[in-house]
């Protein structure tokens, strides 16, 4: 019996995905209506939808790739469900591997025991649900405090918001420059390609913004960021082809 890809599993996936789509559509419509009510230009909101869609395509394809990575062991449906709700690329693989290890198995072998499969589903789910417990309790209070602090001193608030963003982005930048990856995963650690991608991405963004400002191409501004990101990814493909393999795939941090 192929319990991993049975019609029953498809049915569960359809239910979960319908919920995610309904929730997102609900918030989108409510935000759109409120935006119109407080006078945000419809064009700005439409551009946000276009650029966000464009921005999402490449990372979403990367998520599909993660589904495929997990599919060999777990089938397509469970990783599909888990990566559509709460899951993320790094978390799901690690949680699945931890659960499999508890049953003396690993991701490089297909699971044919339904009890093991159910155990993995429990571990992946319970491991990831904590935000859904703490947010309904604490988020409003937390954001209220942030709001009070924001109103007290606008200049410091601007600097603080920027600093928080920059702190977060810095962690990823640092990892691309000096982080160690898993030894058996090519491209996971910092190396020639990660630094080239990062540099091209930053340079492309600066160039595109300069072009938008210089030639007053306001309509193109929302697309500068997705275009810069795709330029970085294209550079990774290009340099992987033209550089000798020993240099292109050199990872100094493992």
């Amino acid at each position: 019996m192929n319990f991993k890809e049975s019609p029953f599993m498809y049915l569960i996936a359809a239910g979960v995905i319908s919920f995610v789509l309904a929730q997102s559509a609900f918030f989108l419509v409510k935000a759109w209506k409120q935006g119109k009510k407080i006078g945000i230009d419809t064009k700005v909101m439409r551009d946000t939808i276009s650029s966000s869609s464009l921005f999402t395509i490449a990372p979403a394809i990367a998520i599909v790739a993660t589904v495929l990575t997990l599919a060999y062991s777990l089938g397509f449906i469970l990783p599909w469900i888990r990566l559509s709700v709460i899951g993320n690329i790094t978390y799901e693989a690690t949680a699945a591997e931890a659960a499999l290890n508890a049953f003396d198995a690993n991701l490089s072998q297909p699971i044919d025991n339904v009890k093991t499969f159910a155990a993995i589903a429990w571990v992946m789910t319970i491991g990831s649900v904590f935000p859904l417990i703490i947010m309904p309790i604490f988020l409003k209070r937390l954001q209220g405090k942030v709001g009070v602090a924001a109103n007290k001193n606008a200049k410091w608030t601007d600097a603080m918001s920027a600093a928080a963003f920059i702190g977060l982005i810095s962690a990823f930048i640092a990892r691309s420059v000096a982080g160690a990856g898993k030894r058996d995963v090519v491209g996971d650690g910092a190396g020639v390609l990660s630094v080239i991608t990062l540099a091209v991405s930053i340079a492309s963004m600066m160039l595109l913004r300069w072009i938008c400002v210089k030639f007053r191409l306001v309509r193109l501004e929302p697309f500068a960021m997705p275009a810069a990101m795709l330029s970085g990814m294209a550079a990774a493909m290009l340099f992987a082809r033209i550089l000798p393999e020993s240099i292109a795939f050199l990872e100094w941090r493992g």
């Binding site: 490449a58 990372p59 394809i61 990367a62 790739a65 600097a159 920027a162 600093a163 963003f165 920059i166 982005i169 810095s170 990823f172 930048i173 990892r175 691309s176 090519v186 491209g187 996971d188 390609l193 990660s194 630094v195 991608t197 990062l198 540099a199 091209v200 991405s201 930053i202 340079a203 492309s204 963004m205 600066m206 913004r209 960021m225 997705p226 810069a228 990101m229 795709l230 330029s231 970085g232 990814m233 294209a234 990774a236 493909m237 340099f239 992987a240 292109a248």
Partner: peptide, 27 residues
């Protein structure tokens, strides 16, 4: 494959650029 392996540097390079230019002292 190399493009998908480098999604995160590409993403955060593009996002970071705007902030780094505007707030280089903080960055």
């Amino acid at each position: 494959a190399p493009a998908f392996q480098q999604v995160l540097p590409a993403l955060f390079g593009a996002i970071g650029a705007g902030y780094f230019v505007k707030h280089w002292k903080i960055s």
